[in-house]
């Protein structure tokens, strides 16, 4: 889209765009390029410049069963947490959108969890779900040793899934509600005139109409679960027990900064980057479509 009326002072234009370009060059393009460089080179043990090794780093990464287990865990985490928070959020939004007395209260409160930092959510859930104090531990009194995220991998995984979906419910709720409220009231009223009850209207009219939002949110949620989950994992489980919650971002951090192996971490970063880029491309393609049809 072009503006009809523009200015022509090129120096000014350059001066205005320069800070942003400088920042993204230094902190975005250069590092991303360097990640590629590191991914295909290896640092020699006694200093000097990096040696070209081709796809060796990727082969090392892909040959490591620990990496594949981390990928599996990340995908399961993304899938389950996304599904859980989306389903809860869409149900809440549908019922809040009935606009019964008091519905404003929910608009003000449901999104609160999203304002919390991931590590703060992590710390809260670590306490609430801790095996020997807090809230859920009561269940261990009745059934001894049934819940212990510090020892049982599945428990730990469930813990980070709960924390992530709790955090995202509010966010998804805001988007679903905005989408539902943009459906013209006359459409809903017409359905009511035709004799469709509340539930029928939800299922056959409102849900299909907010499908684009649902799709958009799936992408956003999966990306967020790849990216922002670091804080949750770091505070609650530290990737354990026995790597049961070793998500991809966490593994990159552990290999790169604790293991000091930049090449391995870079190769893993590239894989994660490709995943996130693929998701974003899907999302933008869909956004394009929505702009055309709306």
């Amino acid at each position: 889209m072009e503006k009809r009326a523009t200015f022509s002072n090129l120096w000014l234009a350059a001066a205005f765009i320069a800070p942003q370009m400088l920042l993204i060059f230094v902190f975005f393009y250069w590092p991303s390029g360097e990640a590629l460089y590191w991914a295909v080179t290896l640092e020699p043990p006694f200093g000097g410049s990096n040696d070209w090794v081709g796809l060796l780093n990727f082969q090392t990464v892909f040959a490591d069963p620990k990496y594949w287990s981390s990928v599996r865990i990340s995908l399961a985490f993304a899938g389950i947490a996304t599904a859980l928070s989306l389903v809860i959020a869409v149900i809440l939004a549908l019922f809040v959108d009935r606009r019964l007395p008091g519905h404003q209260v929910y608009k003000f409160t449901f999104f609160l969890p999203y304002a919390l930092a991931a590590p703060a959510v992590g710390l809260a859930f670590r306490f609430i779900f801790s095996p020997d104090a807090g809230f859920v531990s009561a269940i261990n009194r009745v059934f001894p040793d049934i819940w212990n995220p510090a020892l049982d991998g599945y428990d730990a995984f469930a813990l980070i899934v709960f924390a992530q979906s709790w955090k995202m419910v509010g966010y998804n709720f805001i988007f679903f509600l905005a989408a539902l409220q943009s459906i013209p009231r006359s459409v809903i009223e017409a359905c009511a005139m035709d004799g469709a009850g509340v539930m029928r209207r939800m299922r056959d009219v409102q849900l299909p109409l907010i499908a684009p939002t649902l799709f958009f949110l799936i992408v956003i949620n999966i990306t967020d679960s790849f990216v922002d989950s670091f804080g949750i994992v770091d505070i609650t489980t530290g990737g354990g027990p026995a790597r049961a919650t070793d998500l991809m971002v966490y593994k990159i951090y552990a290999d790169g900064f604790q293991g000091k192996d930049y090449s391995l971490a870079a190769a893993q970063s590239i894989v994660l980057m490709l995943l996130v880029i693929a998701l974003t491309v899907i999302q933008f393609r869909y956004v394009e479509r929505r702009i055309h049809y709306s």
Binding site: A35, V227, Y262
Partner: peptide, 24 residues
């Protein structure tokens, strides 16, 4: 320039953390 800026939307800081650290 627009596309150069736009592309940065794709990769959050967390996924390019190692090289960004090296630049810092």
């Amino acid at each position: 320039f627009f596309w150069l800026i736009f592309i940065t939307l794709m990769l959050p800081l967390e996924v390019r953390i190692v090289p960004t650290y090296a630049v810092a």
